[in-house]
């Protein structure tokens, strides 16, 4: 067990705060309300993460990845099934464009959307840990799940994968994707203690179950 339930809630909550900031940024970009939420965060194996993002189907995916370093390092990935990503791009750039036009813009738009979302997640984590994280410019990856993972999250990578689904709603479109955070062990233990600190605050506010009548 990586996180206990309360810790997991805390991480989920933190990511929710992060993506709602992303949503605010996106809705400013789009000029329309954007809703975003992350239902829960799980620590998974690479294979599990792969199964989750592909849905065990051989669909084509589009991913935006950033590499971060500092007191802790790792990779952040935002993954969408490509068909969804086109909807997302269409929702963002406007309905007036044709499929071809949108396909032309897809990469640009996806990079930017991924950038906004991932940066907000990373800055949320950095805030929580009270540290700076340096992140590279985002890159775009396309292809099957395994192809994308090969270039981003390698088999031999030590570390922990945090995986969460992310639900978007833009202009009445519901678009589901995933956020994958690969963190090195150092990062994860930093995160744990940071989470533990804030959770402690919460625990202190709760009645101790052992003292309960």
């Amino acid at each position: 067990m990586l996180f206990d339930e309360l810790e997991r809630d805390a991480v989920t909550e933190m990511l929710n705060v992060a993506v709602s900031r992303s949503a605010a940024a996106l809705s400013r970009m789009v000029g329309k309300p954007v809703a975003m939420s992350v239902p829960d965060v799980r620590a998974v194996s690479r294979a599990e993460a792969l199964g989750t993002i592909t849905g065990n189907r051989n669909t084509s995916l589009i991913a935006v990845g950033e590499q971060f370093s500092g007191p802790f390092s790792g990779r952040a990935l935002l993954v969408f099934p490509e068909a969804r990503s086109l909807h997302l791009v269409q929702a963002i750039v406007g309905e007036h464009l044709s499929l071809e036009e949108i396909a032309d813009l897809e990469e640009d738009a996806m990079i930017e959307v991924g950038n906004v979302i991932l940066n907000n997640c990373l800055s949320g984590i950095a805030n929580m840990l009270g540290c700076r994280i340096e992140a590279t410019l985002p890159h775009c990856f396309q292809g099957g799940g395994e192809q994308i993972f090969k270039r981003t999250i390698r088999d031999g990578d030590s570390g922990v994968i945090l995986c969460t689904s992310i639900a978007f709603s833009i202009r009445d479109r519901d678009i589901g994707g995933f956020i994958i955070l690969l963190m090195d062990l150092n990062a994860i233990s930093n995160l744990r203690s940071a989470v533990a600190r804030s959770v402690d605050g919460v625990r202190r506010g709760l009645p101790d179950p052992r003292n309960a009548p």
Partner: peptide
């Protein structure tokens, strides 16, 4: 502005495209 804030406060990078903004 958000990107500048993230860069200054956290160290993050951003790309911003005319297609979207």
């Amino acid at each position: 502005e958000l990107a500048v804030r993230d860069a200054l406060d956290t160290g993050l990078s951003a790309v911003i495209s005319h297609h979207v903004n």
